[in-house]
Design a protein around this nucleic acid. Sequence first.
DNA 1: TGTATATTACTGACCGCTCAGTCATTTACA
DNA 2: TGTAAATGACTGAGCGGTCAGTAATATACA
Lengths: 212, 212
Amino acid sequence: MAAALDLFVERGYAATRLDDVAARAGVSKGTLYLYFSSKEELFKAVIRSGIVPLIERGERLFEEHKGTAAGLLREIVFSWWESVGNTKLGGIPKLMFSECRNFPEIGKFYYDEVISRGHRLMQSVLETGMKSGEFRSMDANYAMRLILAPMVFLLLWRHSFDFCDSKHIDADRYLEQHLDMIINGLMPRSREQNNSTQPAKVISMEKKGRIR
Amino acid sequence: MAAALDLFVERGYAATRLDDVAARAGVSKGTLYLYFSSKEELFKAVIRSGIVPLIERGERLFEEHKGTAAGLLREIVFSWWESVGNTKLGGIPKLMFSECRNFPEIGKFYYDEVISRGHRLMQSVLETGMKSGEFRSMDANYAMRLILAPMVFLLLWRHSFDFCDSKHIDADRYLEQHLDMIINGLMPRSREQNNSTQPAKVISMEKKGRIR
DNA sequence: TGTATATTACTGACCGCTCAGTCATTTACA
DNA sequence: TGTAAATGACTGAGCGGTCAGTAATATACA
C-alpha cells in the first residue's frame, strides 16, 4: 500500500501500472490480487488507511482546546500542515480532486469521511469565535470554505504547478500571512487588539523574518 | 476542439477516447489525425485556444481602470467568474491541475501563458493599492496567492466534489464574502471606511440578500 | 524421527480487451 | 476527371486481471 500510495501520488490513478506497484513493493503482480480484488480496491484501501486517522486528530484538538478561537485556528492550521502538507499524505487530496469524478464511489467516501468532517470542524471553530464575540458575525459555512481553500490550494499547488514556479512558496510564510489576513478580516472593531490573540505561537514553526 | 474540450473536462485526459471525440464532433477518427498529429497535440491545442484570450481581457481591465484598487479587485473577480467560472472553460484549470505532472511541457506552457500572467496582474493590483495607502503594506506575492486561491479553488470544487456536496455553493455569495473578508483584512485602520470602496457594483451580479 | 500430506505465500506466463494511431479506399467537388 | 478531404476497418502495444504451478513451512502419522 505504501508503494501504491507513492505511485498513485506521483502519476495519478490511470497512469499507474500494477506491474510497477508490485515491483516497488518487491512482490509479483499476482500477489497484489491475493490482497486486493482489483486496482480500484487497492486505490480505495490506500485512501482509506492514509487519511481517515488524520481527521480524528483534528477533532480531538477541538474538543480539548481551552483558549481563544484564533489560537485554536492557528493550532489546527499548523498541525495540519505538519502532519499532511509536509508528508507524502499531502498527495492524496490532489489525487482525490483529480479522480473523484471518475470514481464517484470513492469520491463520496472521501467526502463523507474526510471533507465533510473537516468542514464541520472548521465551522465549529468559527461559530465558537462568533458566539464569544471574538469574530464578527458572518455566514460560517462560507467563511469556513474561504479559510480552508487557501490551505488545500497550497497542497494542490505543491503537487502540480510548483515545479514550474521560479519563486517557491514558503509554506510557513504563506500560512502565517493567510492567518494574518483572515484574522484581521474576522476581527471586529479595531485592529490593534489582534496581537493578543496568538497564544498558540509555541506550536507553530514561526519564522523570525515574519512578514508584517 | 469544442468536442475535445467537453470530453477532456468531463472525463480527464486519459479516460477520453478519440473515437468519442470524433463521434461528438461528427467526424471520423481518421479526420482528427488530419488536423492534430496526436492526442497530446489535440490536448495542447484545446488548452491554448481556450484560455489564452481570457487572460488578455484581465490585463486590459487593469490598464484601463481608474478608481480604487478595491474596486478593480472586485471587477476582476466578478468578470473572471462570468467568463471562466460559469462557462465550460471553467473545466480547464481542473484539467491542468490534474494532468500537468504527466505533461510537464503543457504544464509549463500553461504556467507561462496563463498562471504567471494572472499572478502578475493580481500582484500589480495589490501593489497599486499598497502604494496609494488604500491597503496596508504586506508581501504582495503571498497576498496575491491568498486572494487567487479561493477563487481557483471554487472552480476546482465545482468540477470535482461539488456533486457530493449537499449544500451547493452559491458562487456569488462565496465571492462576495471572499472580497469582504479579504478587503477587511487588507484595509488599514478602521473598518467603517470600506463601504466607500465599492464603485464597481455595476458590473457585479450582486445579490440583494448579501451576507453582512 | 522420517515420510507423506496439507497449507500458505507467492510467482510469472498468459489472456483478452482497449484504444492510439495507420492506411487503403471512398467521397466531394471544382 | 483529377485531387483534396474524409472514412472506418485494421493493427499492435499496453495493461488489468487470471491461474496453473512452485517452494517453503506446517501438520499427520507410523
